[in-house]
Design a binder for these strands. Sequence first.
RNA 1: GGAAGGAUGGCCGAGCGGUUUAAGGCAGCAGACUUGAAAUCUGCCGUGGGGGCGACUCCACCGUGAGUUCGAAUCUCACUCCUUCCGCCA
Length: 424
Amino acid sequence: MLDLKTVRENLPAVAAALKKRGFDFDVEAFERVDAGRRAAITEAEQLKAAKNGLSKKIGDLKKAGEDAGELMDRVRLMGEQVSAAEARAAELDEKLYDGLKRTPNLPHESVPEGLGAEQNVEVKAWGRPPVFDFSPKPHWELGEALGILDWVRATKISGARFTVYRGMGARLERALIQFMLDTQTQRNGYTEFWTPLLVNAETMFGTGQLPKFEEDLFRLRGDSPYYLIPTAEVPLTNLHRDEVLDEAVLPLKYTAYTPCFRAEAGSYGKDTKGMVRQHQFNKVELVKFALPETSFAEHEALTLDAESILEALELPYRRMLLCAGDMGFGAAKCYDLEVFSAGQEKRWWECSSCSNFTDFQSRRANIKVKRRDGKKELLHTLNGSGLATSRVLPAILENNQLADGSIVVPKVLRPYLGGIEKIG
RNA sequence: GGAAGGAUGGCCGAGCGGUUUAAGGCAGCAGACUUGAAAUCUGCCGUGGGGGCGACUCCACCGUGAGUUCGAAUCUCACUCCUUCCGCCA
C-alpha cells in the first residue's frame, strides 16, 4: 500500500508514476474523498472533544456531591450527533483506504516505461543455447517416453494442470530442490525455513494477494479461514508481520522450499501441455528484509543468488528488466530470469521473478526497523524465486536430451542422484 | 473435543467505572561526570489519524468485534489466539 501522505502531497507525480505502469489513478476522485474524509473526521473529533469535556465535568460535579442530572441529559443527546458524524467519517475513510489498497506500487526511476512484455529490456545473457544434430523434443514427450512424468494419471487423480513424477523423475525433482536449498543456505547465506502451507487472510493481505487477487488463490471451503499459499513469499514475509526488527539484524535472508498452489484463473487454454503452468508446483523462494537505503543493492545481490543456480546447472538464461506495466502489483522494480528451453516453441521460460517491494508490503504487514537512534520506520521487503522447478526441470530435460531420448544429468546434481550421469 | 487461567507500548509488568494525562522497570536516545569506558545522575522515549506557518493542540487505540454507561484498559456478550490439565491422535 502506498503512503497516504505521500500520495496527497505528490498527487501529480504519483499519478504520473502509476500511469507508467498503465494504472489510471483518479486524481479528482482521490482529492474529493480525501478532503471529504478529513472534513468529516474534524467534525466528528470536535464533537467528541466537546462531549469528553462535559463527561469530565460530570465526574467533577459528582465528586463534589452536586447534581449533574441536567448535564447528563445534554451529553446523552450529543451521543447521536457524534455517532452520525463518526459514521460519515468511517464511510469515507473506508472508501479512501479501499482505493489505496487496490493501487499498485510506484515503479522505481530505473524501471523502463512500457505496458507489456514487449517493452521489457534484456540486461544480461548467460550461456549458449545447445546445438543439436537432431530435432529436439519438448519435455512432455521426453518425460512420458522415459516414464518419469505422467500427465494421463495426474489428470485421472486430480485433473488438468497437475503432474505426477515417477521414479527418476521424482528423484530428479527432489535432487533439484535439495541442490537449490543447499546452494542458497551454504553458499549464499540464507536461513532455511519450513512453514505452513495454509495461511490466514491477514497474511494474504500482508503480501498483497488480498483483497485484489482472491480469484487466483485456492481456499479449502468458502467459509474456511485458510488459504493455500501461492508462493513461500507469503509465509516467509509474514513471519515478521507486526514486528519491529533491530537495525543490527538486517538484512535478514530467508529461504524455503514449498509447493505453490495457484488457481491460474484466466489462463485457460494457455500452456496446457507439460509442467510449465500447473495448479501445484515446487519452488525454492528467497526473501529479504532490508534497510530502505540498501534495498536496491540487496535486490541486485538477490538476483545474482537466483542466477547462481542456473549457472551451476549450466542452463542458458537471460535477465529481463521488467517495464513498469509488466511488473507485479507490489513491485517497485523487478527482474525476471528466463531460462532457455530447447524443445518448445516459446523458448525462454520465466523461472524466477526477483522483486523489490520497497515499503509497499511492510506498510501492509506493519514490519518496521528500529534504527540506532531509536526511531522506527518501515523496512523494505524483497523476494525472488531461487528457483521454480516447474520451469527448470523442463529446461534440463530439453537442453540435455540426446538423440535416443535419454537425458544427461547436470554435473552438480549427480551427487544427489547416486552419481548417475544419464537418465534413460 | 472438555475444563481452568490469560492477552496492556520494542520487552517485562501494575492498573479491574471518573487525578490513567496508561504507574514502575528493562532496552534505546541525548546530556552531565570521566583520559576513555563502566557505574551513577538528569532529561527524552508507543502507534495511527485530524487541525495549526509554528510553539502546540485534539481524536482513536490496552487481542478482535459488538454492547452497557454522561464516562470503559476496567463491566457484559461473542470470537481469535496463548498457557496448563484431560481426552483423541501421526
